[in-house]
Design a binder for these strands. Structure first.
Lengths: 198, 198
DNA sequence: CGGTTCCTTGAGGATGATCAACGAGGGTGG
DNA sequence: CCACCCTCGTTGATCATCCTCAAGGAACCG
């Protein structure tokens, strides 16, 4: 799902560049713009008092992010940071909502996108709650492999560091590492030259 | 958000009664119908191998549930059970999607509803990950108090049993009880005749 | 080849789960 | 009205799991 770029420009969108590591908006900020990535990658995350981070989602080329608050007058539930040099197109909330009103097809895809998001978050919650580090990690691996549209039977090179897996599952790096070696002895994952295959 | 009942009937919806404790659909079932509660209450939940339960959501009079899979051809991510004798209106997926196409206003409210759901699940995940039983419970209490539209400064009688709080937070009953007494000594909650106020 | 980022291992400790037992309250039928 | 039952709440002891802290190794890149 992405809104046609020309359409966005027609309605007054502007382009903004973000360096790697730059914050796009903070948790608690008012939601005033619709953002869509033209190039690069954006991570949405929460961090607690202890500095521990939880990744809510990662968005890449073509994807929009931070839309839900625009519809319900809420502040952002998480912080958005650019994880590599990125080019982002942004347009005001008012114009964004107007576009949805004018183009039913766009509204429809947004609805489908949100359905996917709700679904994905339900699945994620299920795995996180299922209090076993093993299941949390297997659940995460299964989810991203599917999201990358990899056939289940093929070997998938997991494109995340141990730390990133930790941030997605709510575990610590060390736990992730220890669980992965256990999963390796069980034949559920492969570790080749420190790379993780699932 | 609810779809007008007369509209649903016009399009061929039917009514079904569920006794307390009856399953409406199971995790993994194909999503073939849109369901909306006329009277009663429905809980959506997951349970793991050990029988531990996680509550994904509770829906009451007027609310629809289990919609997201209808949009994305997925099976249900959780089981729906009637938690009291309930009257539910149901209509086939095809007709439901047709209604959304025909009535932009309905589609629009559905979009807003999903935005709320995504938002709520983001907040919930944030609290659950924030690995401290205290924060999980405080987060849950804050969320439901707000959802019940209670002014923050007023004392709120929490309408959940300890077990239910446990199922929402992914903790055990005993932990919930112990944390609540700690929160009581800290003055963050009140316990009067075993009733919980926040 | 030096620096940075990522991975790994060990020891020790804290937190929440588990298991078991019992108390409190509310409703129902005799 | 009381006895019983059923659900919910409570407490203690013990255990497993994951976190924390600390140190060092491996891979990669300019």
């Amino acid at each position: 799902m992405q809104i046609d770029i020309d359409l966005l420009f027609t309605w007054g969108a502007i382009v903004k560049n973000y360096k790697k590591g730059e914050i796009i908006f903070n948790e608690g900020d008012c939601a005033l713009y619709y953002y869509q990535i033209m190039q690069g990658s954006v991570k949405m995350f929460n961090s607690n008092d202890a500095g521990k981070e939880f990744t809510q989602g990662i968005f890449t080329d073509g994807r929009g992010f931070g839309e839900p608050p625009l519809f319900i007058d809420e502040v952002y539930p998480a912080t958005a940071i650019s994880t590599e040099d990125s080019v982002v197109i942004k347009i005001s909330k008012e114009k964004f909502l107007k576009i949805l009103d004018e183009y039913p097809q766009v509204q429809k895809s947004m609805l489908r996108l949100f359905a996917k998001r709700v679904y994905a978050k339900s699945i994620a919650a299920k795995f996180i709650i299922n209090n076993s580090s093993e299941n949390r990690i297997l659940g995460f691996l299964t989810t991203i492999k599917k999201k990358d549209q990899f056939p289940e039977e093929e070997l998938y090179l997991v494109p995340f560091t141990r730390q990133e897996i930790a941030n997605h599952t709510g575990l610590t790096v060390e736990t992730v590492i220890r669980v992965l070696s256990k999963l390796k002895t069980q034949g559920k994952v492969k570790l080749i030259k420190h790379k993780l295959y699932f």
